[in-house]
Design a protein around this nucleic acid. Sequence first.
DNA 1: CTTCGCATTGAACGCCTGTTTAGCCTGCTC
DNA 2: GAGCAGGCTAAACAGGCGTTCAATGCGAAG
Lengths: 224, 224
Amino acid sequence: MRTGGVSQTVDPGGASAQIRDAAVVRFGRDGFGAGLRTIADDAGVTAGLIVHHFGSKEGLRKACDAHVLALLRAVKEEALTDTDTGSLLARIADIEEFAPLVRYLLRSVQAGGELAETTAEHMIGDAEAYLAAGEAAGVIRTSRAPAARTRLLAYQGLGSLLVWFTLHPDDGDDARFTASLREYVQTITFPAVELFCQGLFVDRSMLEEHLLHVPDPPADGADA
Amino acid sequence: MRTGGVSQTVDPGGASAQIRDAAVVRFGRDGFGAGLRTIADDAGVTAGLIVHHFGSKEGLRKACDAHVLALLRAVKEEALTDTDTGSLLARIADIEEFAPLVRYLLRSVQAGGELAETTAEHMIGDAEAYLAAGEAAGVIRTSRAPAARTRLLAYQGLGSLLVWFTLHPDDGDDARFTASLREYVQTITFPAVELFCQGLFVDRSMLEEHLLHVPDPPADGADA
DNA sequence: CTTCGCATTGAACGCCTGTTTAGCCTGCTC
DNA sequence: GAGCAGGCTAAACAGGCGTTCAATGCGAAG
């Protein structure tokens, strides 16, 4: 109904918004190799109009990037900070309306590029805030390399979600995508909690060995 | 010298092997969107010959998949089982000769498909063996959901490496790729050891809470 | 020496890509 | 009502894609 293209009576935001929305969906489904004509068909317009509005395909993608980023930022504001950023994303995608956004975001991380970096930094920031709050509340252990730990957790959370996403292809079916993410959370939550609570090794000998060999643990994990 | 294409005096394995090797390098560098003519140029042949030998582009990719998988399997046999499969991959890629193979593998995981699944299963198998050995030796804690824990660790290891790989593009420079992976290991090792030794939370209350809500933790993490 | 077979080539094909261009058609302004 | 502006379309363009095909050259077998 929304993507009909023929009967947009209210026309929310004009045709360019409609194109952008269709592009987010199509890019998320098929990746960024999707053709302009396909997107144009989805939006009920022509390929030329896309170029007319966005200059080029890259312009369209940047518009999508900005749109998705802004929308997810707004949504995240309302949600409480979650234990795991991957779980947070999955929970957001559970709201049917936002599934395409999350899918677009994952495709974007998969493909690399500016939004991928922004997303990673964003998740690192989230993790940092969560860890700091936990440390202050006394429920999270302090680390000898806090920044590196933050980065590790963010990469692990985003990365395992990405691997799951890559390995469980939905055929553009939002319901399947949502169900898959739900299954991901269900599969991963318990072992994650277990790992975070009791670690993996029975003693700290390995850690102390590392501390001997590298007296100065990496202070940060930032680069570029 | 090896990829010269003009002066293959010994011709190891024939031209089809040469094409395959060039394809592994080019696919690893540019992704699977790389054109047949580009690969043909790299190998010093024509696009038609590739199709003649491999039937189609997909046939070429499958040949690359099989080749890379066989080669990395052979290499891994020689190496001792490492703590982390990501570290193992990085260490293999450190041998200059194998960097293109690892890059191809990561591209493959990034793109999804059969080799991605095989790789994931492979890493899960490695992790399982490592964890079982550790449990038997009494250095690794037992889990209430061993299979799910194994899967989590494999996904985290592969996923964080993949995110790093995506976020740190080398321009097809093997040295940069190798250096990047080395930096990855260096960045991630300490916080990983710390996490595995002491966990993240100061007590087990969160775990016990989960055990109350879900009296039967997920026995396995397998699907499909 | 001839003949066969196979690796290999270069050109062509049809399709799809992003982009450009010319023109239409609507609605607003004077 | 005339004229202009701009959203929008259809067609064409140049280039890349994977694939096909006829023809070449070479090396081995008879």
